[in-house]
């Protein structure tokens, strides 16, 4: 047997509550907790209705190896996530993980810049913890469509991890909370004010493409956590292809989900 291979774990729901409009916070207890690296993901099976067969790939916000717990945030967008939102504390199921290759520490010296769009926040929080643990300073921008969708508690966590000299900016597209406008506008300002060694981003594809372009213009290395429809999550089906600048495709689930933004053909 290959010990580093992805495997299946049981999980028990410890908490599953609404965190913002259309967004839920899930806390599970699972042996996978001790194996997760920041930016990796897991593929959850929701028990019940057998007519919906694929798992739900989710990144995680944080994991506690000692308590064996993992905290996740997810948006209810379709049948699978709707049924996941109906799971109650004590219910159990299985997950596949830990999947993929997560974030890596900045290669050069200097601050990091974190950018999260909508439900891209959980892996960005995992990156924040990784940086804080390594003693690397960072600033962060978290964008949402509107005030109801802002994950205030999680943005507070982000601010705590960023420390006294870290700046954390909240924005909404419609200006109902924080600054009005897209994350890329706030990012442009920060890039003019401070020097960064590395950007980390997760959010809608158009947002990540914009972040990648801005970072590149300022000569800042950039990591992005990509999303694709996934059949398996562990390299068995080749369904999750990401086009590369060098030509051909990588697989999001094994080569990613975190990629060097300069390698991705946006």
């Amino acid at each position: 047997m290959h010990s580093d291979a992805v495997t299946q774990h049981e999980f028990v729901v410890r908490g599953n509550e609404r965190a913002a409009e259309g967004i839920w916070r899930l806390v599970i207890e699972s042996p996978v907790a001790g194996q997760l690296a920041p930016g990796q993901f897991m593929n959850l099976r929701v028990p019940g209705d057998g007519s919906h067969i694929l798992g739900i790939p989710l990144s995680f916000k944080g994991a506690n190896a000692q308590a064996q717990t993992v905290e996740l945030l997810y948006a209810v967008v379709g049948e699978g996530t709707r049924r996941l939102s109906q799971m109650v504390a004590g219910q159990s199921s299985t997950l596949v993980g830990p999947c993929g290759r997560g974030w890596w520490l900045p290669e050069g010296e200097g601050r990091a810049l974190l950018v999260a769009g909508g439900i891209g926040l959980p892996p960005v929080l995992a990156a924040a913890r990784m940086l804080a643990d390594a003693g690397i300073g960072f600033d962060a921008i978290a964008g949402s469509r509107t005030a109801d969708m802002v994950l205030s508690d999680d943005i507070e966590d982000l601010a705590r991890l960023a420390g006294a000299d870290g700046r954390v900016i909240t924005c909404t597209d419609d200006g109902t909370a924080g600054r009005r406008g897209f994350v890329t506008e706030a990012m442009g300002e920060l890039l003019r004010e401070r020097a960064y060694a590395q950007a980390y981003a997760c959010g809608p594809n158009v947002m990540m493409a914009g972040v990648a372009r801005l970072a590149d213009e300022h000569g800042v290395a950039c990591q992005v956590s990509m999303e694709r429809m996934m059949g398996c999550g562990f390299g068995a089906c080749s369904c999750c292809n990401v086009a590369l600048v060098a030509g051909g495709y990588a697989l999001c689930c094994t080569d990613g989900p975190v990629f060097d933004a300069r390698e991705v053909a946006w």
């Binding site: 057998g50 007519s51 919906h52 067969i53 694929l54 049948e79 694709r228 429809m229 996934m230 059949g231 089906c237 080749s238 369904c239 999750c240 292809n241 990401v242 086009a243 030509g247 051909g248 495709y249």
Partner: peptide, 19 residues
């Protein structure tokens, strides 16, 4: 062979996928 562009997968109602 490179294969086809993304997306390559959709889930269908009623226990089926399409690739």
């Amino acid at each position: 062979w490179d294969g086809n562009p993304a997306p390559r997968l959709a889930e269908l109602p009623g226990s089926a996928i399409m690739n």
